[in-house]
Structures are given as C-alpha cells and as structure tokens.
Amino acid sequence: MITLDHITKTYNKGQFTAVKDISFEVQPGELFGLIGPDGAGKTTLFRILTTLLLPDQGRAVVNNFDVVKDYAKIRSCVGYMPGRFSLYQDLTIEENLNFFATVFGTTIEENYDLVKDIYQQIEPFKDRRAGKLSGGMKQKLALCCALIHKPAVLFLDEPTTGVDVVSRKEFWDMLKRLKQEGITILVSTPYMDEANRCDRIALMQKGSILSIDTPDGIVKAFPEELYAVRSSQTHSLLREVRAYDGTDSCFAFGDSLHVTFKTGKSQDLLPYLKSKGQTDATIQPIEPGIEDCFIHLLKG
C-alpha cells in the first residue's frame, strides 16, 4: 500500500539531512507505527508521502501512485492529520467538519458510519468553537476531519502528543476500529508504550531507521538478559547500581531499574547492594519493552 525506496531528504541546501536512505513497505490494512523522538524525521516522511515535499533521492508509492508524478491522485485518496494541525479555531466543530467534508468533495452524511463512533463523542459540543476544546476533543475532531472522505490510507503525524493518558487510550481504540474497516494507517508517536498497539513499527532516530519489525519481533531481538531491580529507595539505588562494576547499562523505568550486566555479573549485585545499605533490594529477570529496545539500539 505504501512503499518507500531509498528516500533521502535534506534541508538548507544539503546541510541538514532530515531522513537518510529510508526504505520500507506498509501492507494494505496494516497499522504501521513510526516511533521516535522529535527530530527523528517522522514528519518529513509524512510530508513526502502526502506529496507535500519532494524527496531529494529515492522513490515512494502510495496506493500505487507515485508521490511525485501522481500527486493529484494521491491527494484524493489519502487522509492526513499533520502534527501541528489545530483546525480553524474560530469555526465550530460542525463547521470545521462540514468544511473539510466539502473540500474533499463529500458530505458528512455520505461517510457518516465511518466517523460515527468518534463524532458521537464530540457531537454534544458541535456548536462550540474548536479553539475552546480540550486537547483530546480537538484530536478527535481532527481525526473525523481526516476520515470524512473515507481515505484508503490514513497518515497521522503524532496524533497523541500532548494529550492525556485517557484520551490517548481512546484514540488508539479508535484506530483499531478503523483498521478493522480496512483502512491502512501510518501513525507516528514519540511515546514508546504506544508501539505495542501497532502491527509493525519502525524505530527511528536522527533520520534513520534503527529497526523495523513487529513489536514482538523487536522485543525478541533484544540480545541481552534484562533484569528489574527494585528497592524502596529508587533514587539512591540508581546511583549504587550504576556504581557497580558489573553493570552494563542501567535506566530508571517507573518504580524499578532496568539493568543489563556484563557476562555473569548479575548474581553479585544483591550482595553488593546489601553492602551499600540497600537491604530490601530485589532482582528479577524481565521481558524487555520497546523502550528498552530503543535505548539499546541508541547505544549500538
């Protein structure tokens, strides 16, 4: 459905490389995630695929149309929600939706069943201006606007950034339903914990792809044994574990530390910690998460 073939894009006359030699494919009906921090090149990829930017090198195809030659055809079959998209603040919910429906040559009624689930949540406020909505509501409205013409491919650039946990959960539930409707979705996010909601993901950093696979596959590829270390004094524990000479890497993850060790050094940690006064420390092997993998790939 989407194919990128050695795509490179630079800015400032080649001084700054936004994305470098990116290739991947997205299958029809797939929910594909681009995961990475700001500056990873996610937005640049979206803009190339939505025909807003011309790549310097490489070729990209969306829905069998070339992004350079057939840009007009792509524009009528994709839905796009840019990262900084904030709708028309001075128009009401209904006016915004009506407007985008018409721009895409359709009406709200025509594809109502597709947006119904989402729109019903904001419909009670339909006469309120978009500028007066909360982040979660704006995001839902923006999704409705991007969906109203029943696109074959949906591009969502950081739709959950700056939105609270509840709205984020709801949003991913909505994407799951859209996927069931057969819409191909390419979505980006800086939140690693959202990666598991995708069929496949590409981990990105500084314009390059670190790894592409299913979330499970990425986790399975984690080459080392990972342990969770806990104690009641997380902060001092962090210092002690880092000071321990058998520690390879140590990062705080919520209430525990995720630690990898130099070969065979894991057993000696607890005695070491006890000697430093961390008497209630515990250690257990755990399955890595996407964030562990990302950190590992960053080091490599």
Partner: peptide
Amino acid sequence: ELGTMEILLVSPF
C-alpha cells in the same frame, strides 16, 4: 501557521 494549509494541499481541492 495553523497547519490547515497542509490539509488543504493534501486534499483534492
């Protein structure tokens, strides 16, 4: 500035 221009450009409009 709003980002709506991106949407308009990506539409068949």
